[in-house]
C-alpha cells in the first residue's frame, strides 16, 4: 500500500481513538492571562485567600523561629553536658589534691613532732 495512504488511514484511526467521548471534554481556549475576580464572592474568596496566605506565612515564620530555638536549646544542652563532664573531672582532681595535701600535712606534723621530741631529749 502507498505509504501516504497508510499514514492517512492511521491518522484517521488515531483521531477516532483520541476523539472517542470527546464531548466530555471542553475545548481549551488560549487566554492571555487568568481572569481577575468578577463578582463579590470572588472578591471575598480573594481576600480570604490572602488572609490564609498571610497566616501561612506567619506559621512558616514561627516554625522557623521554633526550629532556631530548638537548635539553640540543643546547643545549650550540649554545653551543659560538656561543663558537667569538666566539673566532674575537676572534682576528681580536687579530691586527689586534697588527699595529697592531707598526706603532706601529716608528714610535716610527724616531722615537726620528731624534731620537737629530739629537742626535748636534748634539754632533758
Amino acid at each position: 500500500m502507498d505509504l501516504h495512504q497508510l499514514y492517512l488511514d492511521r491518522l484517521r484511526q488515531r483521531d477516532r481513538i483520541e476523539g472517542n467521548f470527546c464531548y466530555l471534554f471542553e475545548a481549551a481556549v488560549v487566554l492571555e492571562t487568568a481572569q481577575p475576580p468578577q463578582d463579590s464572592r470572588d472578591l471575598v474568596a480573594k481576600s480570604l485567600r490572602e488572609e490564609l496566605h498571610a497566616h501561612e506565612q506567619e506559621i512558616h515564620k514561627l516554625k522557623d523561629i521554633v526550629h532556631l530555638r530548638s537548635k539553640d536549646a540543643e546547643k545549650l544542652n550540649d554545653e551543659i553536658i560538656s561543663l558537667n563532664i569538666e566539673n566532674s573531672l575537676l572534682q576528681d582532681k580536687l579530691t586527689a589534691l586534697q588527699a595529697e595535701y592531707d598526706k603532706l600535712i601529716q608528714r610535716w606534723l610527724a616531722k615537726a613532732q620528731s624534731e620537737a621530741d629530739a629537742m626535748n631529749q636534748g634539754l632533758a
Binding site: 491518522l11 484517521r12 483521531d15 483520541e18 476523539g19 467521548f21 470527546c22 471534554f25 481549551a28
Partner: peptide, 12 residues
C-alpha cells in the same frame, strides 16, 4: 494528512 496532523486533539 497535513490537515489531520494540524487538527489532532487530545483528551486531557
Amino acid at each position: 494528512l497535513r490537515q489531520r496532523t494540524w487538527s489532532g486533539m487530545l483528551n486531557v
